[in-house]
Amino acid sequence: MTHSVTVPIIAANVPAYAHPGDAGADLVSTEAVRLEPGERALVPTGVRVALPEGYAAFVVPRSGLAVKHGITVVNTPGTVDAGYRGEIKVTLLNTDSKQAYDVAVGDRIAQLIIMPVVQARFEPVEALPDSVRGDGGFGSTGYTQGKSE
């Protein structure tokens, strides 16, 4: 079952879902940009939204751009708070070490995911309760299945 929320928007190109049930709606570029190898650029989308309280939007990379061209979003996910009313812009990065990438006006450059969020009440304590994981962090579960490294 798909849930929906109404989001007021100002945009020449309203983000659209490519398929029923998709989580991300496509954001498109409003400017032509050339990304040289290793270069990043802030790319405008022309999209401004008024998210309801209790919701946030997250800007994430498009998998096809990442796999085929090495194009990703630098600060992924980019967070759009409910109170923000400015233009959503996407910081694209060309991770390809040899090929430049041209973004044309109207190209799909990222996806926008709208999600409900909660605000935590942070409660200072002297110690945290135990857990199975404990303080095991980066790499603590190993890299191959069934084997710790």
Rank of each mutant, 00 (worst) to 15 (best):
A12N: 13
D107S: 04
Q119G: 11
G54V: 07
D102R: 12
V105S: 05
A25M: 04
E149M: 11
G139E: 04
A82T: 09
E123Y: 10
L92I: 09
P44H: 04
G46D: 05
Y55M: 06
Q145K: 14
V103L: 02
G86H: 04
R48F: 10
L128H: 07
V47I: 07
L128R: 07
I114W: 00
K147L: 15
E123I: 15
Y17R: 09
V118Y: 11
V43N: 01
S4A: 13
R62L: 07
I113T: 08
L42W: 09
H19Y: 12
A41D: 06
A23Q: 07
A12G: 14
E53K: 12
V132T: 14
E53A: 13
L42N: 12
Y143N: 15
V132D: 13
A82F: 08
P44V: 10
A32P: 07
V117K: 00
D107V: 08
F58G: 06
A57C: 06
V49C: 06
D102M: 11
P129L: 06
P124D: 01
A11V: 08
A18F: 05
L93I: 13
G78L: 03
F58C: 07
P52Q: 00
P37N: 08
V117P: 02
P124L: 03
H69F: 09
I88W: 01
G24C: 11
S29N: 03
G38W: 04
D130G: 10
P20M: 03
H19N: 15
T91G: 05
V49Y: 01
L42K: 11
T6C: 08
A110G: 05
L128P: 04
A110P: 04
D22G: 07
S148W: 14
V28K: 06
R108S: 03
V90L: 02
G146W: 08
Y101D: 01
A41I: 10
K98I: 14
V80S: 02
P61M: 03
T79L: 09
G142T: 09
P20K: 09
V49H: 02
T141L: 12
P77R: 02
Y84M: 04
Y101P: 00
P77F: 00
K147D: 15
E36F: 10
A16E: 15
R34Y: 11
N13K: 12
V43K: 00
T2Q: 14
Q99R: 15
P20V: 10
P129C: 05
E126I: 13
A12V: 15
T45K: 00
E36S: 13
I88H: 01
G142D: 04
T72C: 02
D26A: 08
G46T: 06
P52V: 03
Y143L: 15
M1W: 11
G86V: 08
F122V: 15
K68E: 09
Y55N: 03
G134K: 06
A104T: 12
F138G: 12
M115E: 14
G86D: 05
L42A: 12
N13P: 04
Q111K: 10
A25W: 02
V47C: 05
H19M: 10
A23V: 12
I109C: 02
I88Q: 02
I9E: 07
A25G: 06
I109V: 07
V73G: 01
T141S: 12
V47E: 03
E36L: 13
R121W: 10
V125T: 12
K147W: 14
Q145N: 14
G137K: 08
G137V: 08
Q99F: 10
L65H: 01
I88L: 10
G146Q: 08
L51I: 04
I88T: 06
G46M: 06
A32W: 07
L35H: 01
Y101C: 00
